Simulated scan of single mutants.
Amino acid sequence: MSEHKPYTYVTASIHEGVTRFDVSFCTSEMSAKAFGGDGERPFLTLSSTEAHMTVTTTGGGPVTEQDVTLAREIFTASARYLANCERLHAEQPVNPTDQTTPSGEVAA
């Protein structure tokens, strides 16, 4: 069994004058937080020791319909991510040398 070490991968590229940043958080050593309320604009942050990403309203201004749509997409994607993590975690052996899952089944 190979050992998977945590990492955060950040790249920046420029193509035809458009700058693109890609951030991959491949670590459980990070945090996800939401801020805002009482008339303040909302913020969603994902942070590790290597990188920090913030999502907030368009141009930092009033909440638009596109901002609401994006928030729904983030929520839906997060729910799918959670469901997949829970399913895969439940299917894993409790002990890597033992191929029995928490439900008593033999892991494939």
Score class of each variant (00 low, 15 high):
Gly36Ser: 05
His15Asp: 14
Glu91Lys: 00
Met1Ala: 09
Asp67Phe: 01
Thr54Tyr: 02
Met1Lys: 12
Leu82Tyr: 11
Phe75Ile: 12
Glu86His: 02
Leu44Asn: 03
Glu16Cys: 07
Ile74Leu: 06
Thr76Met: 08
Ile14Tyr: 13
Glu40Phe: 00
Leu82Met: 15
Val23Asn: 00
Glu40Lys: 00
Ala107Tyr: 03
Ile14Arg: 14
Gly61Tyr: 08
Ala107Gly: 05
Ala32Met: 14
Tyr7Ser: 15
Pro96Asn: 10
Phe75Gly: 14
Thr19Phe: 07
Ser13Val: 09
Gln92His: 15
Pro96Met: 08
Glu16His: 10
Asp38His: 05
Val18Phe: 05
Tyr81Leu: 13
Leu82Trp: 08
Ile74Met: 02
Gly39Lys: 00
Asp98His: 09
Thr56Phe: 01
Ser78Trp: 03
Val10Thr: 10
Gly17Asp: 01
Phe21Met: 11
Gly37Cys: 01
Cys85Gln: 07
Thr27Asn: 02
Ser48Phe: 03
Ser13His: 09
Tyr9Val: 11
Thr19Ser: 09
Pro96Tyr: 09
Ala34Tyr: 08
Thr64Pro: 00
Ser78Phe: 06
Leu46His: 05
Tyr81Met: 14
Leu70His: 05
Pro42Glu: 08
Arg80His: 10
Ala77Gln: 03
Arg80Ala: 12
Gly36Phe: 02
Ala107Trp: 06
Ser2Glu: 13
Phe21Leu: 11
Gly104Tyr: 03
Arg80Ser: 11
Arg72Trp: 08
Gly37Pro: 02
Asn84Met: 08
Val68Asp: 12
Ala32Val: 15
Pro102Tyr: 04
Arg20Lys: 15
Gln66Trp: 07
Cys85Lys: 05
Phe35Glu: 11
Thr19Trp: 06
Val63Pro: 01
Ala51Leu: 01
Ser48Thr: 05
Glu3Phe: 06
Pro42Met: 12
Val106Pro: 03
Ala90Phe: 04
Glu40Tyr: 01
Thr49His: 12
Arg87Lys: 06
Glu29Gln: 15
Ala12His: 15
Asn95Gly: 05
Ala79Tyr: 05
Met53Val: 15
Val23Tyr: 00
Pro42Asn: 12
Pro42Gln: 10
Glu65Gly: 10
Gly61Leu: 10
Thr56Pro: 01
Cys85Pro: 03
Glu3His: 13
Cys85Arg: 06
Pro62Thr: 10
Ser13Glu: 14
Pro6Trp: 01
Gly37Ile: 00
Val18Leu: 09
Arg87Tyr: 00
Leu88Ser: 03
Glu29Ala: 09
Arg87Met: 02
Thr69Phe: 05
Leu88Gln: 04
Ile14Pro: 04
Pro6Ala: 02
Glu16Ala: 14
Glu3Ala: 14
Phe75His: 09
Met1Leu: 14
His15Gly: 11
Met1Glu: 14
